[in-house]
Design a binder for these strands. Sequence first.
DNA 1: TTATATTTGTGAACAGTTTCACAAAAGAAA
DNA 2: TTTCTTTTGTGAAACTGTTCACAAATATAA
Lengths: 212, 212
Amino acid sequence: MPAQLKKISESTIHRLSIYYRALAALEKENRTTISSKELAKRDKLTPAQVRKDLSFFGSFGTRGLGYPVVELRNRIAEIMGLNRLWNVALVGVGNIGSALAQYKEFAKQGFNIKLIFDNDLRKIGSNHKGIIVSDVRNLKSMVVSENIDIVIIAVPAASAQAVCDEVVAGGIKAILNFAPINLKVPDDVVLRNQNMCIELEHLAFALNNKNR
Amino acid sequence: MPAQLKKISESTIHRLSIYYRALAALEKENRTTISSKELAKRDKLTPAQVRKDLSFFGSFGTRGLGYPVVELRNRIAEIMGLNRLWNVALVGVGNIGSALAQYKEFAKQGFNIKLIFDNDLRKIGSNHKGIIVSDVRNLKSMVVSENIDIVIIAVPAASAQAVCDEVVAGGIKAILNFAPINLKVPDDVVLRNQNMCIELEHLAFALNNKNR
DNA sequence: TTATATTTGTGAACAGTTTCACAAAAGAAA
DNA sequence: TTTCTTTTGTGAAACTGTTCACAAATATAA
């Protein structure tokens, strides 16, 4: 029972998120067990991959039968930290920021957008889905006082690093960045970038190199 | 000079996008050459990685000096297909869809949102940044007639597969999906998923497993 | 021109990830 | 019970991606 002994790869974490979704769906269908074979098929993976991924966290399958849906889902939630609420602050209420403020999936998965910031006087004080937009000048103090766990940066590229530095100074250890720029963060801060242009560029490359 | 002989990995493509951005910035600063060492430093990579990545596409550096900024940037643009316009259709004008419709970076990189679709009668016919929203029932015929290269799916999870099937039937070979669902596509269609919840889950995992 | 310093390009070593293959465990059927 | 089938869990093998290390090429300085 290797309870998180070895280093878990990013790809494994990613697949864990995917398994979690499949298991949630199975739970709704009242399925009680699922085999690695079937779980793999749903997401175009291999059964061996599924078993290897799960084995990093222990062995909760039953040979000859498969994995218990509810138990496995709970275990993944526990591993990923999905059985609790996370306080999220959103910085920047432009195109993308306001879309994210309204995005319902976040709340469903326990990501609670608690604070919203902007630097535009016309936006500060306005009500965004029940949350009053705060002045970005209070960013650092408020992420501390409101116990924010995760910050989403959705400001223009030019101001993203300044925002980043502020929240890091406020002790934030996890950032999701939508600005098309490479942010510099200390080693103990986890940063993930969501760059839509780069995604389109992957597609462009694929189309451009079809006949090689 | 191995002009695309070997298989290029997804990670190499990703870094190519990153180099491209760095080179664009360097060009603005009127730098004429850059070494793999400096290019690596800008993006927290290793010089060897930069050289290996570039070597897949030929050898355009000068020993003792580095790479010519303008030439290398053009070459990457050529490889990635960034020196042309791509016709993009956006399906779904909800939170995320309308944010994407207004996102200026796309046009800057040659991704031209030419068509926008929705199934909501209140939205169809309305003007979104100069583009009239079309009825999604015309999706298949219009992606063909307007020579669409790439489709962005930003509809609710429940209707995403139907939209996907339509555009695939219309001959589309590249899809960027924002719906939180695993779409099924034929092998010759490139699909990329942008799932913001999964990104937050990566961060949650990291925070949850800090002290292992 | 010659010597010294840089920096590329790349095969080889290394590291990490995925797949294979099979013993072991449990269920299902006879 | 006994036999047969299914399916897990996991070392080992295969594969993929990254880093090392150094010859070769060029620039720069003397």
